[in-house]
Design a protein around this nucleic acid. Structure first.
Lengths: 166, 166
DNA sequence: GCAAAGTTTCAATAAATACTGAACCGACAA
DNA sequence: TTGTCGGTTCAGTATTTATTGAAACTTTGC
């Protein structure tokens, strides 16, 4: 397989993976492109490589920066911005966990709290409250487990975890 | 908050959560509806409750069964099928992990293997191979961690994990 | 102040995804 | 054999989501 084919395959697959996880294809592809880029790239280069418009590139690059997966790099003397991806996969996953926790898990926990307040006037209502309580319990546990996970370091994940739970 | 409002809020939020994770809104809503239903429901009842068509209901119920999140229940004497959700959240999460691992992580691992075979003829190619190698290493670790996770029981998650890693 | 180089925004549009509804299938009972 | 009750499928359509491209904005140098 040639380098060119390999790169294309990777970008395409990473894009597909993203889109089945609710991340738009282009955003994932830009991420892939930057992951394997030997140097930081400018918006122009990204547009060129992926055949996308300026607006699209800009918005998705911003989103990647928001997620902490890509950094802006200002080269001295150059007026335009360059972008590099975080290459440490543990950092990548940690940032994704942090963001999704904040954007999805936490709002869900708030909803679960709110709806716990239905009047327990009927048997059905009491059963509803109970189901919600269990989901809440589980979600809280997940929430704090993820917190701990995010605080721990890469080594822990790569090395210790497997032994510990065996 | 009334029971009706609470249920609606839950179904709506669960649907939204699903759609940000690449699961279609209706599928997540049916799941939510079944999670809080005091009894198993027929396709008709689901259609009625969520205001969706027969075809839509049918396809998404099948998908939920595929994922192991919903069971078919045949009531004696009744001709039609009824559906119940798996209520144990740990089982729910486990099944989702199993499915997504199979559908997304494993194919990705295969792609990473394939593209490891690019000719290391240039310096750039060697760098590419190295980046891919690291991603592969990390993904394999994630893969086996998830395997272990799935094999362990609910108690482990709810009870022991937190203490262990502190 | 003005032009050049670059970035951001967003309304219009394209593309992807989900949904509908009608036709079809199979099991059963009369 | 025919009719009924449900389940399944899928082409056409609707809805949602992503993308484009042009205008507006910002920064910098002259």
């Amino acid at each position: 397989m040639t380098l060119k084919e390999g790169k294309e395959r990777f970008i395409q697959s990473w894009g597909a993976l993203g889109s089945s996880w609710g991340i738009n294809r282009t955003m994932a592809q830009i991420h892939a492109l930057l992951l394997i880029a030997p140097e930081s790239l400018s918006a122009e280069e990204i547009m060129e490589e992926l055949q996308i418009s300026r607006g699209n590139a800009n918005m998705n690059i911003r989103a990647l920066i928001d997620w902490g997966l890509v950094y802006k790099e200002l080269k001295p003397g150059e007026r335009k911005e360059f972008f590099v991806a975080e290459k440490d996969m543990w950092e990548v996953v940690k940032n994704i966990i942090i963001q999704r926790k904040k954007r999805e898990l936490e709002p869900m926990l708030r909803v679960l709290d709110e709806i716990s307040s239905v009047d327990p006037e009927s048997e059905e209502a009491r059963e509803f409250i109970e189901v919600i309580r269990e989901i809440k319990l589980f979600s809280n546990k997940a929430d704090s487990t993820l917190d701990t996970l995010v605080k721990s370091d890469s080594n822990w994940f790569v090395g210790t975890f497997m032994k510990m739970i065996k």
